[in-house]
């Protein structure tokens, strides 16, 4: 600090406290609503102090949409997205920065095109694709009239129908969300800053490409991987539209969708208290991640925007 200015410091503290109030206010009211009975939560205006029914509401929420199962689903999906995306991104970034081959630039541009296109934009065709991912192959089969060919040759009628229906499956929830190249670019940028001498030294030791990747590049990327993983975990945990459309089986939904199903609609009872306690439960894991791993989180956020 250049000079001391107590008044300004106080103002700054006040501003920050204001910011904190702004951040916490909805959370506080969510907590208050989550701790009241259904009668209390319907009062206008709502009580401003928490009641004593938080755990009771939580138990209701837990049994109403089987939160236990949904939290496990959320965990599987967000870890799946994180691991999957980090893995394929590391590999492809390694390929496009450390190998010279004919289609390198083509591959680079193919990946680049998907950089900023969220799944929301192409939601309808993606839904169709994932409802039967094998459809393109089926077109090929039909187009070549393989069945007819077979029948002509053997006299047996064979119906070839290919299916790869991923509705209500973990892979259906995970794979389409992996399909964006942002992480690949993060690792590409990082690999470009890795000293050239490392590879040369490894080569002198006779290390193969994959050995170099495992023993040198991967350990060097450790901190990037952790930072990015946190961001991807949050991204996966908080997904909404895709699991909403994509899971029609209640047991395959995620916790966020569970909360959405708890929100009172026109012909259900106005159980805002239960919905809010469920919402708090669902936001707990990501909030803890951010609080405990604050430094990594900040770094991941900055890294993943490059």
């Amino acid at each position: 600090m250049v000079e001391r200015s107590p008044l300004l410091t106080i103002i700054c503290h006040l501003l920050l406290i204001g910011g904190i109030v702004l951040v916490c206010m909805p959370l506080y009211f969510a907590f208050v609503a989550g701790s009241l009975t259904m009668q209390e939560v319907q009062q206008v205006p709502m009580p401003l102090l928490p009641g004593g029914h938080f755990l009771e509401n939580l138990a209701t929420a837990w049994s109403k949409v089987s939160f236990g199962r949904l939290l496990v689903n959320s965990l599987i999906v967000s870890v799946g997205i994180t691991v999957g995306k980090v893995a394929i991104s590391l590999l492809s970034a390694f390929a496009i920065t450390y190998f010279r081959f004919r289609f390198r630039l083509l591959a680079f541009w193919l990946i680049f095109m998907s950089l900023m296109l969220p799944v929301e934009v192409r939601i309808v065709p993606t839904y169709e694709s994932v409802a039967n991912a094998a459809l393109p192959i089926q077109w090929v089969v039909d187009g070549l009239n393989l069945s007819g060919l077979w029948e002509a040759l053997t006299g047996y009628r064979v119906e070839i129908s290919l299916e790869w229906n991923m509705l209500n499956t973990y892979q259906g929830l995970i794979l389409p969300l992996i399909a964006s190249a942002s992480a690949t670019f993060l690792f590409r940028q990082f690999f470009l800053t890795v000293p050239e001498e490392l590879l040369e030294a490894a080569r002198l030791d006779g290390a193969s490409a994959m050995r170099f990747f495992w023993t040198i590049l991967l350990p060097l990327s450790r901190s990037n991987i952790i930072a990015l993983s946190i961001i991807l975990f949050l991204y996966g945990w908080n997904q909404y539209l895709w699991p909403l459309l994509f899971t029609t089986d209640k047991d395959m939904a995620t916790a966020v969708i569970g909360v959405k199903n708890l929100i009172p609609r026109s012909d259900t009872e106005p159980a805002w208290n239960v919905a809010m306690s469920g919402a708090l439960l669902t936001m707990l894991p990501p909030v803890l991640v951010v609080l405990i791993m604050q430094r990594w989180f900040v770094r991941g956020l900055v890294d993943s925007s490059k």
């Binding site: 192959i137 229906n165 892979q171």
Partner: peptide
Amino acid sequence: MNAVSLRAYVAAGA
């Protein structure tokens, strides 16, 4: 003609 119904499923990648 014998009609045999043969269905090839590609399920979960397998």
